[in-house]
């Protein structure tokens, strides 16, 4: 009886100890990064001389949160930018010219909270890109008089990456070098500056 108890204790101990061992496998730390002047240009649009419009074309600028770099890979990308359009690597193409095919399990939603306050991912809110629209659609406000695009304060993009991890993004500016008071007539547009936090650990829903 005593030995059995001892054995049980030993088993429990080993069990707990091994549990401790599991905890000792350190999670990769998350850190905040800033991407400056991600160029998201295109060609086409409206011809200044004729006023005729042609479909916008050109490669989307793709970004991979895990590497923290832009990429030309057709599969290993999480989010991509062209002009004001932001797409994610999940769902289906909306049919734009030169729009990349979705190969991953990506999804996204916009949280109406400041960046720092988004500490948890709410997986029930995720939507994918589709033929009727993009998961990330209303990230900016447009001032028709100043002709200015400004990223709406208090909105945080929560992204599911192409391989099912999570990231949160705060867009800072649409203008080159993110001037504090941009001028739509002077500053070059289609340059994204954004902060992001990437959660590299599988299945972890916090930042």
């Amino acid at each position: 009886m005593k030995t059995i108890k001892l054995l049980l204790l030993a088993v429990l101990f080993i069990g707990f100890a091994s549990c401790d061992d599991d905890d000792d496998i350190q999670l990769i730390e998350v850190s905040s990064e800033t991407v400056v002047n991600l160029h998201a240009t295109y060609s086409g649009g409206i011809n200044q001389q004729t006023g005729m419009s042609t479909p916008i074309s050109g490669e989307f600028t793709k970004y991979n949160f895990a590497t923290g770099m832009t990429t030309t890979s057709t599969t290993e990308w999480d989010i991509a930018f062209r002009g004001l359009d932001i797409i994610i690597n999940g769902g289906t193409s909306s049919g734009l010219t030169d729009e990349p095919a979705r190969t991953g399990v990506g999804a996204a939603y916009i949280a109406s909270m400041p960046f720092a306050n988004v500490t948890d991912v709410d997986t029930s809110l995720f939507v994918e890109d589709s033929a009727t629209g993009f998961a990330i659609d209303s990230w900016y406000d447009y001032d028709p008089i100043a002709r200015l695009i400004s990223a709406t304060a208090g909105k945080t993009l929560v992204i599911k990456t192409n391989d099912g991890k999570y990231a949160k993004v705060r867009i800072i500016s649409y203008y080159k070098d993110a001037p504090a008071t941009p001028d739509a007539f002077m500053d070059e547009s289609r340059y994204y500056t954004f902060d992001f936090v990437y959660q590299p650990n599988d299945g972890v829903l916090t930042f």
Binding site: P114, F115, A153, G154, R170, S173, A178, A180
Partner: peptide, 14 residues
């Protein structure tokens, strides 16, 4: 409380 602002590139606040 749906409106937030940011001053320069500082953190957004309600």
């Amino acid at each position: 409380g749906e409106i937030f602002a940011r001053i320069g590139n500082s953190a957004d606040f309600q």
